[in-house]
Design a protein around this nucleic acid. Structure first.
Lengths: 204, 204
DNA sequence: TTCTAAAATTGAGTCAATTCTGTTTTTATG
DNA sequence: CATAAAAACAGAATTGACTCAATTTTAGAA
């Protein structure tokens, strides 16, 4: 049988995430009290801690949903990149950045990033590291694709290049979420400018 | 006169920082309770909060000492860089990295980084951003120096390049402090490998 | 020296995340 | 079905960062 217990568990997970997402949006991460989340989700405080090790892990679950969506969207670009190295990179990184504030506010990103460095071995810390690696890998895959198309020199170290591009973008994104007044177009322009150096170096 | 009040103030600042540094090292950031720091520094809890807005700011003061020392050490390299682009970069970034664990444990770095993204507008958050900018600026200065020496092409965008190199190093350093078993030589080797792409692109 | 206002200190109290322990619900077994 | 073990739940208790009203200390004027 499907198991009553398993069904209830999945249901409670869902209710907690939904309640938390709503309250995080409304009141911010700090403003959303665990008791309030518990109340909204119709479970007790103790139960929440039965499902998540700490408040941060709840946010972590929400962030993971978001990043996985971004990874999915990125696949399309890798499969069918613009026929120009600079545009191809800009398109892929653009997808990451444009999607980023869809579900998560800057404050939520700040908290999520903070937690992932604070507790790198907690469930969310590990998940976040894995997501970063997936994004790096996707950039590396794009480079490999461009090499296959003869747009990037064959002797380029794709692994190192992928890391370089991801690390730079990620750091720029961190600075971006730290400043509430920072805007996406300026962020993308700054990253394009940085990547121009690389594009010039690797173009076939 | 030098002012009794001012002297006592400076003395209490020093005692608090010394007590905190010792306890952070011994018990870790979380393990060091404010009451214990207050006791060790022979002031009350309230006084600590009169000097620092929150626990993170105490750590922030310690981090700032460290980073300023690193910046100082870096000046020597910029003034007198190795006569080879790759070595020059490796030497400067090497100084940053080798110094980094002198006073601060990986756990302290993790907490410091977390706090600086969590509270970007707090005293420490702002200070940390300024320190990052100073490091970026120093890398940019090194590139300018190398251009002056004719080792780097004149038409390279030094600003963008400095950001790219700093951001990549910083992100690598973040990953480094997240994994307790990670070692400095491997970190430096990975960064050298990444920078090799850039070095090839910008060498005159 | 004495007095007063400003500045600084104190520590008991507040608040919210997390832990703990006893209770209830579910599942598996005879 | 009855029942015992296992899993999950509830919410009271704990913990520790941070606040605040009362008290003490300092600077400087008279």
């Amino acid at each position: 049988m499907s198991g009553l217990r398993a069904r209830q568990k999945a249901d409670r997970h869902r209710r907690i995430i939904e309640a938390a997402a709503e309250l995080f949006r409304e009141a911010g991460y700090e403003g959303a009290k665990i008791e309030a989340i518990a109340g909204q989700a119709e479970v007790s405080v103790g139960t929440i801690y039965n499902y998540y090790q700490n408040k941060g892990d709840i946010l972590g679950a929400i962030v993971s949903l978001e990043v996985n969506e971004v990874l999915n969207a990125g696949r399309g670009v890798v499969a069918n990149p613009p026929a120009n190295v600079g545009d191809a990179l800009d398109t892929l990184l653009g997808i990451y950045i444009e999607h980023s504030l869809h579900y998560l506010s800057k404050e939520m990103w700040r908290q999520a990033m903070a937690i992932s460095t604070q507790l790198p071995d907690g469930p969310f810390g590990q998940a976040y590291t894995a997501l970063d690696r997936s994004l790096t890998e996707q950039i590396r895959a794009l480079i490999a694709r461009l090499q296959g198309l003869g747009l990037v020199k064959q002797d380029i170290d794709g692994q190192a290049l992928g890391e370089l591009i991801f690390n730079n973008m990620n750091m720029m994104f961190i600075e971006f979420v730290k400043r509430d007044e920072a805007r996406i177009p300026e962020l993308r322009a700054a990253i394009r400018r940085q990547n121009r150096i690389l594009v010039a170096a690797i173009g076939a």
